[in-house]
């Protein structure tokens, strides 16, 4: 077992133990904080499939996060107002059931990722970064102008959606759901990276010409990765909306897209647990430095600069040593 695997197990154990402790000590706020960290981790794990394996620096992943959020918001909004989404040609009702909402969120964000990917993957490098950023802004302004669903103010959902057999209003139970989603996504990510598809995608990042020479199409590999990546981030968006019981255009904001990338880098690029470590650290720093100084973004920005300029490899690189042979 390598040091990195040990470290990953320790992180996972912490994510299980800390909220149970908080539950027993009756500190629901700590559980909410942990839930936030886990959901942001999930969003960044989604991005890491495109960025870590495929080398696609997407600065617009908040699009999928926001679509997931709005999928939850719109379905629950119609359900809580007893207003069908659509009557003709056939009746579609809103829903308060998490599994249905998740399915819709995943499908909607995967479709959006497919379309954005089709357009933006025609380019590469700086063009790709700028275009994903621009599409993110497009969705942001669209959400602001969409007054039927709250426009700029967003919309509130009064009661958290339900999951069969669980009481999601109890923080630890909702946390369990989110953690399960994260663990599944991490398992999927790990398996994907080792699969033939993952190896080909990784090769397409390093030497696209050779991949083409053996008869694989880098564009298609990247498009599939981008779509999967968007779908996972979309699921995280639906969970995030359910955590806050609130959706607004800020879920589409470019700052959030930037933060997802930041999570991956703080934790360590091309590491399975990089996004998890980064997102957890971000939430902890935000809570503690944010409580100590109103201007915590300055300190965070400076810390980030130091990490980018001098500390390559992120937190995991610091603790577990050099990355395994990985591009």
């Amino acid at each position: 077992m390598t040091r990195e695997t040990l470290f990953n197990l320790a992180v996972l154990a912490g994510l299980v133990a800390l909220p149970i402790y908080a539950h027993l000590a009756d500190e629901p706020f700590t559980i909410t904080l942990a839930t936030r960290a886990v959901i942001l981790s999930l969003a960044a794990v989604g991005l890491n499939i495109a960025l870590g394996i495929g080398g696609l620096v997407s600065l617009g992943h908040a699009v999928f996060f926001g679509i997931g959020g709005y999928a939850m918001g719109i379905l629950a909004f119609h359900a809580q107002n007893y207003m069908p989404l659509m009557e003709a040609p056939f009746l579609i009702e809103g829903t308060k059931s998490m599994p249905v909402i998740w399915l819709v969120a995943v499908i909607a964000s995967a479709l959006a990722a497919l379309v954005i990917g089709l357009l933006s993957l025609r380019t590469s490098g700086v063009y790709f970064i700028m275009i994903t950023l621009a599409f993110g802004q497009m969705f942001y302004y669209f959400a602001i102008s969409w007054s039927a669903y709250g426009g700029e103010d967003g919309m509130s959902i009064y009661v958290r959606n339900g999951f069969p057999g669980l009481n999601t209003l109890i923080p630890i139970q909702f946390y369990g759901l989110c953690l399960a989603a994260l663990v599944l996504a991490l398992g999927f990510n790990g398996a994907l990276a080792r699969s033939r598809f993952g190896l080909a995608l990784n090769a397409a990042r390093q030497v696209p010409d050779r991949v083409r020479a053996v008869g694989l199409d880098p564009f298609r590999l990247r498009l599939v990765a981008f779509t999967i990546s968007g779908a996972i981030t979309g699921l995280a968006g639906a969970l995030f909306a359910d955590l806050n019981r609130f959706v607004s255009p800020t879920m589409f904001s470019w700052q959030l897209s930037g933060e997802f990338i930041v999570f991956i880098i703080i934790g360590g690029t091309a590491r399975l647990f990089g996004p998890v470590v980064g997102a957890c650290l971000f939430v902890v720093l935000e809570h503690y430095i944010g409580g100590w100084s109103d201007y915590w973004h300055i300190w965070f920005g400076l810390l980030l600069l130091v990490i980018v300029l001098f500390g390559r490899g992120g937190v995991i690189g610091l603790i577990a040593g050099k990355a395994r042979a990985h591009g």
Binding site: L51, V57, L59, G125, V126, I129, G258, I261, V262, I265, T269, Y295, W296, H297, I298, F300, G301, L302, L304, L305, V308, L309
Partner: peptide, 20 residues
Amino acid sequence: HLDQVLATFALILVFSEGTR
């Protein structure tokens, strides 16, 4: 480009919050 994006993103945070 990834490092460039991150470092200049960090600069935005510093500039915006510093101006505030």
